[in-house]
Amino acid sequence: RGQWEHGGAGRAGQAGKMENFSALFGGAEQPPPAAAAALGFGPAKAAGAGAAPPPAASAAASAAPPAPGEGKAAAAGPFYLLRELPGSTELTGSTNLITHYNLEHAYNKFCGKKVKEKLSNFLPDLPGMIDLPGSHDNSSLRSLIEKPPICGSSFTPLTGTMLTGFRLHAGPLPEQCRLMHIQPPKKKNKHKHKQSRTQDPVPPETPSDSDHKKKKKKKEEDPERKRKKKEKKKKKNRHSPEHPGVGSSQASSSSSLR
């Protein structure tokens, strides 16, 4: 900057100015001042206390042959270290990259409306308390990566003798274990769904579809549900429970009980 301020005076100053001017547009390829002096492009700083070079030095600068690799600079007239401008085809931040990569749909989908916070909203059909942090019950995916389970490379079906290890005692599970299968937040979510539906006249595509299905299912299963409840009450009273849901239909209906 000092050179700029000094330079307005004479011809010598002009040469000094040009040097800096070129360096300004030169960018990263600028050699340090000492190197420039060695190449004969610029006067050595030792020539004077001021930054403006003497006329002789500037003449030497203009007459100096181009250094190796400076052919382009020679073609650029008084400017050296002139870099080529980046091509206009180069992709930069000046273009809307979301549009460029055709992500408008994704952007509108995720940023246009509120995405529900809970994991159970993303995986509504997944049983269990999935909204709780994985660290609570040691079920985090990260722990699976950090400490992979020690197991074989293949899965082999269980033989008859192996299956004897899975003989269970008759009777219901203790309450605290049963809680694993109960999903109290889901009921709350359903209410929330209803609330949001009343607020938003146009609900999102996928959740609305699933909601619709759920609603339909609920309607269809309502009388069945009541009947099943009665049956369960009877079962409890009799103390002679029937075979619990082995078939998928039975299992799914019992799931609706939960």
């Binding site: 049983p127 899965f155 082999t156 079906p157 269980l158 299956l163 899975f166 003989r167 269970l168 005692h169 008759a170 009777g171 219901p172 599970l173 274990c177 049963r178 694993m180 299968h181 429970p241 029937e242 075979h243 619990p244 849901g245 082995v246 998928s248 299992a251 019992s254 799931s255």
Partner: peptide, 28 residues
């Protein structure tokens, strides 16, 4: 797995065959 959970939650001796089947389904 969910069905397996239901069988186990109120296990009956007659459910053993179903449980074994479910366990092998799990492997497959």
């Amino acid at each position: 797995i969910r069905q397996l959970g239901i069988i186990v939650s109120d296990f009956q001796p007659s459910s053993q065959a179903g449980l074994n089947q479910k366990l092998n389904f799990m492997v497959t």
